[in-house]
Amino acid sequence: MTTSVDGRTTRWARHNATRRRELVEATLRAIRRHGHAVGMDDIAAEAGTSKTVFYRHFGDRSGLYEAVVESVHAFIWGSLSDALATDRPPQELVTGLADAYLRVVEVDGEIYRFVTNRPGGSPDPVLGITNRIGDQVSAALARWLVAHDLDPSPANTWGHGVVGFTWAVADRWILTDLRRPRADIVAFIGDLFTPAFDAQPATARPMEPTKES
């Protein structure tokens, strides 16, 4: 009997997870079709169901918003994974990160606007993803600095600073309706940070004393 109940519970949980995913995908389609200020009626129509079904699965619009943010976070993280996968020099890491993120903004601007215009009381969606990516960029910078016998102390400040700067630039870029080409914005970001990275060899780690000394 226990096994049967557990089996039904597992199947029901899988069904709910699948249905939530379908509803989130329908919400994303509705946002792309109607813009970031889309209403629940249009979202429900896109899903071919009623608002009641959405509220049953997500509680309210804030719950749906948080589920959309989670989905967008996963997409952004996947888009940035290549930029963070290899131990690139800092200049290449920064421009690769900027280009990957700005490409997301360029391709899905209405989704980006939806995510960054959170309902009252919802957690800040940008903070979670920027902290996670900032940690990864910091770790990548630290590995590169250590590999080149340089002081890794700036890595954490640089990593989170670069990520925060890129996010701020993306917010401003979308407010200008992407007036400048993405390649220009990426180049500007690289031009700002490259001098700092080029100066880093002057702060090389002191050599460890040898046994003979």
Rank of each mutant, 00 (worst) to 15 (best):
H57I: 00
T194A: 15
L80I: 06
A199W: 11
A155C: 03
L93R: 05
L28P: 01
V169P: 12
A187C: 08
T10C: 07
A74T: 09
A155L: 06
G39T: 01
V38M: 08
V72P: 02
D177Y: 05
Y65P: 08
H160G: 01
F197D: 02
S153W: 01
W167R: 07
R179C: 05
A187T: 09
G161P: 04
D41E: 13
A17V: 14
S50K: 00
L28N: 07
V38W: 14
R21A: 14
T116Q: 10
L192M: 11
L28D: 07
P90D: 09
I129Q: 01
H73M: 12
L178M: 09
I185T: 15
E25P: 05
T194K: 12
I76F: 05
G190V: 02
L192H: 08
E92C: 04
I31H: 08
S71Y: 11
V72F: 03
L178V: 07
E110N: 12
F193T: 13
V115P: 10
F54N: 00
A139R: 06
L175I: 00
R132K: 12
P195G: 12
Y101E: 08
P154H: 10
V69K: 03
F188C: 10
G134A: 04
L28K: 12
T2N: 13
R182G: 04
A139M: 04
D6G: 08
W12Q: 15
H73F: 04
D108T: 10
A170L: 02
T9L: 15
T52F: 01
I185D: 09
L93M: 03
A100Y: 06
T130C: 08
D151R: 04
V53H: 04
D6M: 14
T95C: 10
T95F: 02
R103G: 09
P181C: 04
D6N: 14
R88H: 13
R179W: 05
T49H: 00
D42M: 00
S71P: 00
V104W: 08
F75S: 14
I129G: 02
S4Q: 10
W12G: 13
M40W: 03
Q136Y: 00
P89L: 04
E92G: 15
S213M: 06
M1N: 09
R179Q: 13
H160C: 01
A204D: 04
R172N: 09
P195N: 11
R61E: 03
I133M: 03
G190N: 03
R179A: 15
A26C: 13
V24E: 06
E70Q: 12
G109D: 08
T3Q: 12
R172V: 07
A74H: 07
E92W: 00
L178T: 03
W144A: 03
A17L: 15
V163I: 11
F165W: 07
G128P: 01
N16G: 15
R32K: 05
L64Y: 00
A147M: 05
T3Y: 11
D108F: 09
G109A: 12
L102H: 08
A83F: 05
E25A: 15
L145G: 08
V105N: 11
E92N: 13
N16S: 14
D108V: 05
R19G: 09
R172Q: 14
R19H: 15
R113D: 14
H160A: 02
W144N: 06
R113I: 07
V115T: 03
P209I: 12
D87Y: 01
L178P: 01
